[in-house]
C-alpha cells in the first residue's frame, strides 16, 4: 500500500502521469496540487545550480540559464542529501547543451565556478610558511616533495575566460570582455577564508601539475623548463610560497628535517 503510494506520488510529481495519485486522495480534483511539490523539487535544484554557478548564470542571462539548469536537473537530478555540492557535471553538460554555440566559453566559465566552490569548501589548513623552509640547505630543495594546499585546483581551459568570469562573479556593472578560443591555465586556492585565483603560463601550469602529482620540486622545475626556457623556478616557487599555495602539513619535509638538519 505504502509502496504503491510512493510510486503514484513520484509518477505525478517527478513524472508526468498524475492518474494513479488520484486514488490516494479524498478529493481527486486536488491532484493538480501535486504541482506544488513538482515546482519545489525542480526549483530547489535549479536554484542550487544558480548559487553554485553565479558567473555562468550572469554570463548566460536569466532565460538561457533557467533553460539549461532545468534540463540539467532532469538529466542529472541530485543524488546526495545535500545540495551544497550539487552540479558537478554541469560544465560537461553545457558542452552539448542546445544553443551553447552562442556562448561557447560558458562550459569553461562553469569549470571556474565549480573549481571556486571546490576550493571554497576544501578542508581548512594553514599554508606552509617560508620560515618552515628557511633552515633547509638550498641544494637539497630539489629533492623535496612538497604538497600543495588541499584547496588548490588547477584548470586548463580552451577559452581565455578568466577575466570575464571573475568580473561576473562579483556583482559588478556589466562590462564587455573579449573572450577568445585561446588556451588558458588557472590556479584557484584558499589559503585562509578567501578563494584566490591566478592565471598561469603554460610552464607555470606544468610546474604545479607535476607538484600536484607528487613530483619533487626539481622534477617540477625540469618539466616547466621543458615547456619554456624562460621559466624562473626561484621566482615562481617563492611566489607560490608567499601566496599560501602549499600545505602546512608536509610529511616529506618532516622526514628530511631529521635526516638533513
Amino acid at each position: 500500500m505504502l509502496s504503491g503510494y510512493y510510486q503514484a506520488f513520484l509518477d505525478a510529481v517527478v513524472g508526468t502521469d498524475p492518474r494513479m495519485l488520484g486514488a490516494y486522495l479524498e478529493d481527486r480534483a486536488a491532484v493538480s496540487n501535486a504541482l506544488v511539490y513538482r515546482n519545489t523539487t525542480f526549483r530547489g535544484a535549479a536554484d542550487a545550480l544558480a548559487t553554485a554557478y553565479p558567473a555562468v548564470a550572469r554570463l548566460a542571462g536569466e532565460v538561457y540559464f533557467e533553460h539549461v539548469a532545468i534540463a540539467y536537473v532532469e538529466a542529472s537530478p541530485p543524488r546526495q542529501r545535500s545540495l551544497v555540492g550539487y552540479g558537478e557535471g554541469f560544465a560537461d553538460f553545457l558542452e552539448d547543451a542546445p544553443g551553447i554555440a552562442e556562448a561557447p566559453y560558458l562550459p569553461d566559465a562553469a569549470r571556474l565556478d565549480s573549481a571556486w566552490l571546490a576550493a571554497h569548501r576544501a578542508p581548512s589548513q594553514a599554508p606552509l610558511a617560508a620560515a618552515d623552509l628557511a633552515a633547509l640547505r638550498p641544494e637539497r630543495l630539489a629533492e623535496l616533495v612538497l604538497k600543495l594546499h588541499p584547496s588548490v585546483r588547477l584548470l586548463e581551459l580552451g577559452w581565455n575566460v578568466h577575466d570575464a568570469w571573475k568580473h561576473n562573479r562579483a556583482d559588478a556593472p556589466a562590462k564587455t570582455h573579449q573572450v577568445l578560443p585561446e588556451r588558458q591555465y588557472v590556479m584557484l586556492w584558499r589559503p585562509a577564508h578567501e578563494v584566490e585565483t591566478q592565471v598561469l603560463s603554460a610552464a607555470e601550469a606544468r610546474f604545479f601539475q607535476t607538484l600536484a602529482c607528487g613530483g619533487a620540486l626539481g622534477e617540477a622545475a625540469e618539466d616547466a623548463l621543458a615547456v619554456s626556457q624562460d621559466f624562473n623556478t626561484t621566482l615562481v616557487f617563492a611566489g607560490a610560497l608567499e601566496a599560501g599555495a602549499f600545505a602546512a602539513e608536509q610529511p616529506d619535509l618532516d622526514g628530511k628535517r631529521e635526516e638533513w638538519w
Binding site: V14, P77, R81
Partner: peptide, 15 residues
C-alpha cells in the same frame, strides 16, 4: 524526500 537514490530536496507527504 528521496527514492531510488534520487534526492528531491523537498518534504513529500505521507498518508
Amino acid at each position: 524526500s528521496a527514492a531510488g537514490g534520487r534526492y528531491f530536496a523537498d518534504l513529500f507527504p505521507l498518508p
